[in-house]
Simulated scan of single mutants.
Amino acid sequence: MTETTPTALWNDSSTLSELTTAIGWGAVGATCNPVIALAAIRSDLPRWQARIAEIAAEHPTATESEIGWQVVEEVSVEAAKLLEPTFEAHRGRNGRLSMQTDPRLHRDAAALAAQAEYFASLAPNVIVKIPATEVGIEAIEEATYRGVSINVTVSFTVPQAVAAGEAIERGLARRDAEGLDTATMGPVVTIMVGRLDDWLKVVVERDGLDVDADHLEWGGVAAFKEAYRIFGERGLRARLLAAAYRNSLQWTELVGGDIVLSPPFSWQEKFEASGHDPQPRLDLPVDADVLATLLSIPDFVRAYAADGMTPAEFDAFGATRTTLRQFLEADADLDRIVRDVIVPAP
């Protein structure tokens, strides 16, 4: 895939052993989020517990959250070093390690943009995640203008992807107008294809809808294909990125375009073991019967049409609420890891 098509492979993990293996399979970048960062810390917990104790001793007034995020920074910078050769070879378009802004800032555009700018200063090849919420869209444009390469996250739908892509475009245009560099920036707009499928299944069960269960496996794929068509039509410079895998269709149906596929390491292992050589299928439409089934679900209509939601409606979408809550819970779990070091249980 990576040798015969323009499709790039990124690894959905910053755990060093997984990222190293994925690079051997052709991965040229890595994504991360609070859940993934927490997993990376837990994968080498004794080491990071010792580092937490050191940070706490060095900064006696630091809060649990401040100590935990210092560890996240160190995990991310360490992983970013593995990708520096690729970053240099690709002149900034690939070779990037994603860091996600603190989900607790999701209501504050200025704070998101400021943290994004700070994270981008930690290593030359950091790309920063900002959520595709109403506030996040504002922060995405501003951070892009400041020269931060953005990886849009908490994004599941065509209207979110298009709004984020256009916000990036406005930020890039502002830089172009001032003669600032945009050629070495590498923004991407994620669609968490599997999380859209997850939400559609919740809706079908909740509302008692009679639909073919197999067709529900195509929701994220259909949304991604439609977003890809619109990005090309509108000339948006950001690449689309598929993440949050739930089935192999989210691999085989999305190969072929100038996009990024970022499966979790466990899915990469399955794909590598399959021996399957996927052919370009991104431009092929989803079967009409499958699409008709999906369009019978009101929340899929909202997710599929470019004007299906306004930014003011993004925050209330079920997948957005579910994912933000999971990311906030990961923050709380990281606080607990720090607490167990600095205030051990009796």
Rank of each mutant, 00 (worst) to 15 (best):
V189I: 09
G235M: 06
D258R: 11
G171K: 03
F271P: 08
T252G: 04
G235I: 09
R170W: 07
G275V: 04
G194C: 08
S262T: 15
D212L: 11
A242W: 13
M185N: 02
A164E: 03
M192N: 03
A243M: 12
A167E: 01
F271W: 14
L209I: 11
P264V: 01
N247Q: 05
K225L: 13
R281A: 15
N247V: 01
G194R: 03
V211A: 10
L216R: 05
L254G: 11
A164K: 01
G257H: 08
R239L: 06
S274M: 00
Q268D: 06
P187H: 12
S248Q: 13
A273Y: 07
A238K: 03
R175M: 07
L254C: 06
L249Y: 13
E226P: 11
K201D: 04
V202I: 14
M185L: 15
G186H: 00
V202C: 01
G235A: 07
E233M: 03
R229C: 11
K270W: 00
L200D: 11
V260F: 05
L200K: 09
L209W: 09
V255G: 09
A223M: 09
R239W: 12
G232N: 14
H215K: 08
A242P: 12
D181L: 02
I230Q: 12
F231D: 02
I230T: 14
V255C: 10
D277Q: 15
T190E: 08
E205W: 05
P264A: 04
W218K: 13
G256I: 00
F231M: 02
G194I: 03
D181K: 13
F265Q: 00
D214H: 07
L241V: 05
V260K: 05
E205I: 01
V188N: 07
Q250H: 11
V202W: 06
A227N: 10
A273E: 12
E217Y: 12
V203L: 04
R195P: 02
G165H: 01
R206G: 10
L196C: 08
H276S: 06
E272P: 00
F224C: 05
D207L: 09
I259V: 15
P264E: 02
T184S: 15
A177M: 13
R281S: 13
H215V: 03
Y228S: 15
E166P: 00
L284H: 10
G194P: 04
K201M: 10
L216V: 06
T190Y: 00
E253S: 11
W251A: 05
A227C: 09
R246E: 04
E205T: 15
H276A: 13
D176I: 14
V188D: 02
M192R: 04
W267Y: 12
W199S: 07
D214I: 00
H215I: 00
A167M: 01
V193C: 09
A238E: 05
E166W: 00
G171N: 09
V202L: 10
D258S: 07
M192Q: 10
D181R: 10
V211T: 14
S248D: 14
D283K: 14
R175C: 04
